[in-house]
Design a protein around this nucleic acid. Sequence first.
DNA 1: CCAGCTTTAGTGATGTGTCAACAAATATTT
DNA 2: AAATATTTGTTGACACATCACTAAAGCTGG
Lengths: 159, 159
Amino acid sequence: MADPQRLEEQRLDEREARVWRSYRGLGQELQAALDRQLVRDAGLSAAEYALLVPLSEASGDVLRMRDLGVRIGWDRSRLSHQARRMAKRGLLVREDCADDARGAMVRLTAAGRAAIENAAPEHVATVRRYFADPLSDEELDLLGAVFERLRDRLAADAD
Amino acid sequence: MADPQRLEEQRLDEREARVWRSYRGLGQELQAALDRQLVRDAGLSAAEYALLVPLSEASGDVLRMRDLGVRIGWDRSRLSHQARRMAKRGLLVREDCADDARGAMVRLTAAGRAAIENAAPEHVATVRRYFADPLSDEELDLLGAVFERLRDRLAADAD
DNA sequence: CCAGCTTTAGTGATGTGTCAACAAATATTT
DNA sequence: AAATATTTGTTGACACATCACTAAAGCTGG
């Protein structure tokens, strides 16, 4: 017969299940709201926005694919596919890398800069509206600490 | 000249930006960890798991597409595509709806039940490991309250 | 040097998510 | 009942994500 204590450990109690559902639901709904806002107000997808932000902050509007990937936490394949689609759309152009022939650079186009500068204010306002503004300073601090602890737990295992 | 107060409102201050990045990073990393665990230990995708859970809890292992969609918060198209792929994989079968000729039912197969029963314990354990266990009771309560407030804020606009 | 390993990037296949268009059945209005 | 509107589900097109594979360039130790 199995140890009942052992089985108990595997389930979520009512409180845990409720918070987990809230967390997942919030993630789903917030992401959906941000996606809708971006495409509606600026004609950009979340993936396009994710690439445009670090590119627009880079000196010379240029970044190496490798460095861009590290900044946003994407693997090479995902980034390569996305860059190809965005180059096709005219938001960026690909260039050779001077110091490393393996490398590839991506450069923001004028259209890309216009797109991100048009999109950013409304996007940030939406983040404020649905995330930052409803939270008190104390809650922000506590959330920050909790989220970082959970990220550390994930990183510690590095599954 | 623009009102400087107005511009200030649109940006995120350092504290807000940090917590926002933590939240987004956690969401990304936690989702990735759960996805990896599911496919590695049970050969299921997160989408497949999402459908199998309510189906396995339904009386008779059958649900109407409409009701299944409402439960997991998916639109008809997304659910239809996913059900088609899972029927092809043999995790469920489609059936006609007796009381409403428009309707469609999905029924869990033996393979589907085996898959979810095999997957659930390890999945729940992973949620405990990376989410519930590192949090104190007080933190859980506070997170639950905060997440629900943010969800209410989103629902209030119903963008 | 150069043989083998690592790093970097791209590609094709497949699974997933979203949108618009469609079709059929049901519900509502007149 | 007939016309109209709503609900329900599917489909095709396309954007996005992940995996396995390839290939070229750089690095490392003999």
